[in-house]
């Protein structure tokens, strides 16, 4: 790890100001991705701006027709939340499948969403549930937020403060864990709303994506059989030492069916 300056502001505007004023500075939330990267000297920011003391970024609140999760809320808290378990059990289940207990205790939803790792679980949850990303400056719909491999719509100086989830009628998440890393080799979140079904896939490609043919089929008939024959195009899917693209494509269908099964309880 190389030396860096360390800031721990307690107000969001101060953090945003530091972020824009210090060249090559980085936000650190739970640090579950950033800290190992620093230790391996793969990144060497001039300054770290620690978000842990910022007021109002932690906790889960009931908005009646929505649930809002503060950006600094750790995965373990989401997984254990009675509110999330009651209103969006698929989201609590997703949080419980991230990493290991240590990662779930430190890692945060805001950090995961901002990092947009192509194999992370939360992007599938956020996109699949059609959530809204609340930042220090605006609100962004999930559909406009995730822009591919580690890329998001976040502007310089912009800080995620919360994620607001609408309540689905039903939702399920199925994850095929990469055996070594326990990231999603393929993870699929399926959510049924009054106006249709959303299907979001993580792990299979360079970024989280939706599967319109499955969404249409499930909107007609919310049953695994409705999508059993839908095959995913292997173009653009990831191929690596763990899984070839056609295998990942196959798993998307399998995991989507299992997510529907999970949604149906």
């Amino acid at each position: 790890m190389k030396p860096f300056a360390y800031h721990q502001p307690d107000q969001i505007p101060d953090a945003a100001k530091l972020l824009t004023s210090i060249e090559d500075s980085k936000l650190v939330a739970g640090g579950m991705t950033l800290i190992p990267t620093l230790k391996q000297r793969l990144a060497s920011p001039a300054a770290l701006i620690d978000l842990s003391k910022l007021a109002g970024l932690k906790g889960i609140s009931d908005g009646g027709t929505t649930i809002t999760i503060g950006a600094m809320t750790p995965h373990a808290e989401v997984a254990a939340s009675k509110l999330v378990q009651a209103k969006i059990p698929a989201l609590a289940a997703l949080a419980s499948m991230i990493g290991d207990p240590a990662v779930r205790s430190r890692g945060t939803i805001g950090g995961s969403v901002a990092n947009n790792d192509p194999a992370a679980d939360y992007p599938a949850g956020v996109l699949g549930l059609g959530a809204t990303i609340v930042t220090s400056t605006r609100e962004v719909a999930a559909d406009k937020f995730f822009l591919g491999l580690f890329e998001t719509a976040l502007q310089p100086g912009e800080i995620i403060t919360a994620i607001r989830f609408p309540l689905p009628l039903k939702a399920g998440y199925a994850k095929f864990k990469a055996p070594a890393s326990r990231y999603a080799l393929v993870g699929v979140l399926v959510a049924k709303f009054a106006d249709g079904v959303r299907v979001a896939v993580t792990g299979a490609g360079p970024g989280v994506f939706r599967v319109p043919p499955m969404e249409q089929a499930l909107s007609q008939n919310f049953d695994p059989s409705a999508i059993a024959a839908i095959k995913i195009d292997t173009d653009g899917l990831t191929s690596d030492i763990h899984a070839e693209a056609d295998y990942r494509a196959h798993l998307v269908t399998v995991m989507a069916k299992r997510a529907v099964d999970a949604a149906l309880g």
Binding site: P179, A180, S181, Y183, D240, I241, H242
Partner: peptide, 22 residues
């Protein structure tokens, strides 16, 4: 589970961490 995988040509170890070597 376990497999040490090298990239031919470059000789890079592709399974060089606990994230990739199961």
């Amino acid at each position: 589970y376990e497999n040490a995988v090298y990239d031919d040509g470059s000789g890079q170890l592709l399974s060089g961490s606990l994230m990739d070597y199961c």
